[in-house]
Design a protein around this nucleic acid. Structure first.
Lengths: 344, 344
DNA sequence: TTGTACGCGTTATCAT
DNA sequence: ATGATAACGCGTACAA
């Protein structure tokens, strides 16, 4: 069933049927009602998207491209919250959501890239994915990654990390461990090497590390690379491996700064298991403020980064950007230090 | 940049360029290499999806239609896991994922429905959403809802609920409460009325309720409607409201059967807060076996329903179904009673 | 191995 | 208020 068929059946022109669906003001409402009703009767539920897109160059679909595999993103609470915020705004505006994985074969994905009216890019896209998308000339909003000439929505990771570390360092500190998320390019839990500290990078993990280190420096705490762990994946299992390594040291740290709540919650669990009292014997901080953080015992001191709101803001920004707009907006969302029992 | 332009620039025909992308065997690999390289050079990243779809009637996109709002689905752990499994298989097969919300305006969504090559439907779709999708004649797989003539992937909710209730009733029981998920059509926490128990329904919640009641009946426990609560949304906040209502009774139950882990975990937290010992004073069971269930203290006795696997199976089933296939497969996945400390 | 020409379903423009 | 028609970009049968 297509528009032409419907027109033929009803004895009107295709233009009229099209208008019945898209431009109600172009025909009498009586005819419109009749067309809509009879079309439904015939099993025609509206214009074909492909044809409409071909003609109009607009699909009503927004592409959300995730650096990590889609599958992983659904399991990561921060990514899930971001998607939640994005979905909320898109649905409100009658847009559909196409999920793209930058991990996909570039041949496979390139064709799908032509579909969306605009893109939200999450994380630091590797390789040429970004260039490919950019070349389409459609509006783009980047989330959690600074970049040249596109809109972006970020938080100030360095400042937030500084704030929480400064808070953690208020009391006397005898040993510090940092559990970093994706600091180096390895899929295993490992400590950093001195060289790893030299790399300048704009990504989330390095910005947070910089904030931690600056806070340490301010109170004359020396943190060397062997006190910093790399956690490759933000899930409980991987985090636990890292935490056990840290808490298995002969000299366990008094403060653990974690770059995500998932890691911090793992630390809380393992500490409890080993009979280490938090916060008396060890203070633990997280990052993100995911829902679980306030429900753990002890509740987690962390940085609230409003991931849902970040998604909403990104989606709104995208929808408010017309095709040929050249202005660039760089939005930096507020973060908030949330002090709870794990590091009072 | 389009195929025609590229052809003109390279001095070859459009057919040749098209073949370079779609049918490598139709031209010399040398020419193909040149075309691919130069096309990329010109900023052409492959055939336009809309045009290709219009021509071929195939988009490489799979539509996933969720009963609840998209936004809610991302926050629900079970839905997230399902999506995770679906995404995994789709990406493996080079398919893109279009998220559709059945809550969307039917006018808005109808156009998007023409895009996907097939659909995965999650939950009991209300109204005519299902009919609309079905009429497109594209392959459909339903998840978590029994239905007539389409493929489906389910678990045996009645049997699983029976199994866990039977286990919970092994020890002497003096009081039982059931915390049900979406048993009636209300967006408030409330108890059921006697009439509510009369409605026969195939949906997930009622199947589970039936299983619970059958197990109770077998050991001569009487459960009346006032012992059954309706929880409208599967999140911690709502669950907590219901749990507080239950635990605020003068005569608190000895067994709480929860239709989701989210609810059960809330029960665990509130019980701890009120100084009720689990499992000594009260036994609590969940449903789903989400990751958090094994990490809570005490760990949760629950039904493992392998949501991720369910997603994988659904996606594979869909991808293996050719367009005009008339056979119907009804897959029922195994569930497993996982006995942990909350109800040993 | 390569080129030509038509049609996929829709919408915008113009004419009636 | 409604109808006729030319694109939109591509894939493929068929001709060369």
């Amino acid at each position: 069933m297509n528009l032409t068929q419907v027109a033929k059946q009803l004895g009107v022109s295709t233009a009229t049927v099209s208008n019945a669906f898209n431009r109600p003001d172009q025909l009498s409402s009586k005819l419109r009602q009749r067309i809509l009703a009879e079309a439904a009767e015939l099993g025609y539920h509206g214009p074909n998207l492909a044809a409409r897109l071909l003609r109009k160059g607009e699909s009503g679909v927004i592409g959300v491209m995730l650096v990590d595999s889609l599958s992983y993103s659904f399991s990561d609470p921060v990514a899930s919250q971001l998607l939640q915020g994005i979905a909320e705004v898109l649905v409100e505006n009658g847009k559909q959501m196409l999920l793209l994985s930058s991990a996909l074969d570039s041949a496979e994905q390139s064709s799908a890239e032509s579909l969306p009216d605009g893109f939200i890019l999450y994380g630091a896209l590797q390789g040429n994915s970004f260039e490919q998308v950019k070349r389409l000339g459609k509006p783009i909003v980047k989330v959690d990654y600074q970049s040249g000439s596109t809109h972006s929505v970020n938080i100030d990771n360095e400042a937030a990390a500084f704030a929480i570390a400064q808070h953690a360092f208020k009391e006397q500190v005898q040993g510090v461990a940092i559990l970093g998320l994706r600091l180096v390019d390895s899929d295993r839990v490992c400590r950093l090497t001195p060289e790893d500290l030299l790399t300048e990078s704009l990504d989330v993990a390095h910005s947070r590390l910089k904030g931690y280190l600056r806070a340490a420096h301010e109170v004359n705490i020396d943190i060397v690379s062997s006190q910093i762990w790399h956690v490759p994946i933000n899930n409980s299992e991987t985090a636990e491996v890292a935490v056990r390594e840290v808490l298995g040291l002969s000299d366990i740290p008094k403060v653990i700064l974690c770059m995500s709540d998932v890691i911090a919650l793992a630390a809380l669990r393992v500490a409890k298991e080993l009979g280490i009292n938090v916060p008396e014997d060890m203070r633990i901080t997280g990052f993100d403020d995911m829902p679980e953080a306030s429900r753990s015992v002890p509740a987690l001191t962390t940085i609230c980064q409003q991931s849902i709101e970040k998604g909403r803001v990104a989606a709104k920004l995208l929808l408010n950007t017309p095709q040929g707009d050249n202005t660039v907006q760089k939005i930096v969302l507020h973060t908030r230090l949330v002090i709870r029992q794990s590091c009072p």
